[in-house]
């Protein structure tokens, strides 16, 4: 490090405590950090950008929601169509999250604990719904279950409704939230290896005992975060659900679709009141993510997600 002195630059050497190792700077020296005015400018620019594109939109949701007073806000939330939209949203999330949870655990178990051919192909296929536009996700269910679709006539003859009804909304939600939990679990379980499970096996544990007592406790934070993300997306999905819903008020409207109808009806305060529910959910999601990440980092490096 003696070369540091020779560089002729103004270095933090002067700041170093006298006597002990005057050459090695005790903290990041000026040579590897920027002047204060550059730092302030960069922080200012970054915060200005985030303010314009993130903070102001977020704050505006709550301000607009309460713009006409608490009474209007409350009335918008307890109105019959809003309540039925909330119920349908809870149904869609309540079905799709557990289904994708079971899938996520099964896929992560197979991929992380075993070697088999085609594993990377399987990983790519699991990611597929991420790269499919929500509108196309809705479209594919129209093509399968719509009247002109594969099962359309059979469904009509048996008086079953999937698109423009609740099952279609649930299916579209399952599709768009498909990868979330698997994506959280797979990298973590791959990093953790299978030694603990093998030890449990040698000690006589059954497969289900290993899953419940060893694997799932090891990944509990990633699992929780995956569930939170999956739930947030399930409740907020708009494009895919919009295609298959048919927009029947009080029957096939989820909360995001209800917001659209209110907004297009110029009932802005009501639209933002319902939107504030979902924005609140988004904030809860971010807070839980923050807690989960801290918990995951805290006890053992083992649990560091990716």
């Amino acid at each position: 490090m003696s070369a540091v002195i020779d560089s002729g630059k103004r270095l933090a050497v002067a700041d170093a405590p006298a006597g002990t190792r005057p050459v090695a700077p005790p903290r990041a020296s000026d040579a590897v950090s920027e002047p204060a005015w550059v730092r302030r400018t960069l922080i200012g620019l970054a915060l200005a950008f985030l303010t314009l594109f993130l903070f102001v939109p977020l704050v505006s949701v709550f301000v607009q929601a309460l713009a006409k007073g608490v009474d209007v806000y409350w009335a918008a939330l307890v109105e019959a169509d809003a309540v039925s939209a909330l119920k349908l949203t809870l149904v869609a999330a309540g079905v799709s999250v557990p289904l994708n949870l079971v899938f996520g655990v099964a896929a992560a178990w197979a991929i992380a604990k075993f070697d088999f051919r085609g594993k990377s192909l399987l990983l790519t296929l699991i990611d597929l719904p991420f790269s499919v536009s929500p509108v196309i996700a809705g479209l594919i269910y129209m093509l399968v279950f719509g009247l002109q679709g594969w099962c359309g006539e059979w469904l009509r003859d048996h008086d079953l409704k999937i698109v423009f009804a609740v099952p279609g909304i649930v299916l579209a939600t399952v599709f768009v939230t498909f990868p979330f939990i698997a994506r959280e679990l797979i990298p973590l379980m791959q990093a953790q290896g299978q030694e603990q499970e093998e030890a449990a096996r040698v000690l006589g544990a059954s497969g289900w005992q290993i899953l419940w007592r060893v694997t799932l406790p090891n990944v509990r934070w990633a699992l929780l975060y995956g569930v939170i993300l999956c739930n947030a997306r399930a409740m907020g999905e708009f494009g895919a659900v919009s295609v298959v819903s048919g927009h029947i008020r009080g029957q096939t409207n989820t909360l995001p679709l209800h917001i659209e109808i209110l907004y297009n009806d110029y009932q802005f305060a009501a639209a933002f009141a319902v939107a504030s529910l979902l924005a609140g959910l988004a904030l809860v999601t971010l807070v839980l993510k923050y807690i989960v990440e801290r918990r995951a980092h805290a006890p053992l490096d083992l649990e560091k997600p990716e």
Binding site: G236, L257, I259, E260, F272, A275, A282
Partner: peptide
């Protein structure tokens, strides 16, 4: 923490707010 907001905020809410 707020950088992830666009991931968590439903697109319809972002749409009407913007």
């Amino acid at each position: 923490a707020l950088v992830d907001l666009p991931f968590a905020l439903p697109t319809a809410v972002a749409g009407i707010a913007l």
